[in-house]
Amino acid sequence: MSEKNSPPVSSSGLTQNTAATLSYVLGFITGLIFLFLEKDNKFIRFHAMQSIVISVAFLILNTVLSFIPIIGWILAPLLAPVGLVIWILCMVKAYKGEWYEFPWAGKFAREQVDKMSAQGQ
Rank of each mutant, 00 (worst) to 15 (best):
Q16I: 02
G106R: 07
S117E: 15
S23V: 07
I52S: 03
V53N: 11
A118S: 12
L84S: 14
F34L: 07
V56E: 12
G120K: 11
Y95Q: 11
I74G: 04
V53A: 12
P81N: 10
Q121N: 10
L59S: 15
I29M: 09
N41A: 04
G97L: 09
N41C: 04
G31F: 02
L84H: 12
V53M: 08
A109L: 14
Q50K: 09
S10E: 08
G83P: 05
K42E: 08
L79S: 14
R45C: 04
V85K: 10
V56F: 13
A19P: 02
E111Q: 13
H47K: 02
S55G: 14
W99M: 04
L37Y: 09
R45K: 07
P81L: 12
L84C: 14
K4L: 06
F36M: 05
S55R: 12
I44H: 01
S55Q: 13
Y100A: 10
M116H: 04
K96G: 00
G27F: 01
K96H: 04
E3Q: 13
W87P: 03
F67L: 07
S12E: 14
I74V: 08
M116C: 04
E101R: 06
W99L: 04
W99H: 06
G13N: 08
L78A: 12
S12F: 10
I33H: 08
G31S: 07
N41M: 02
I70E: 07
I74C: 04
L37C: 09
G13D: 09
I52Q: 01
L79G: 15
M49D: 01
L65M: 13
S55L: 12
I71K: 12
T18D: 00
K4H: 07
K93A: 03
I54S: 06
H47Q: 01
S10K: 05
W104R: 01
K93I: 00
Q119I: 09
Q16P: 00
G31D: 05
I54V: 13
A76S: 15
A48H: 03
P8I: 04
F36G: 03
C90A: 15
G106C: 09
D40T: 05
L14R: 01
I86H: 10
S51A: 07
G13L: 09
I86C: 14
L89F: 14
I86W: 11
M91C: 08
T30C: 02
E111S: 13
S2N: 13
F58R: 09
W104C: 04
A57H: 08
F43S: 01
A19D: 06
R45H: 03
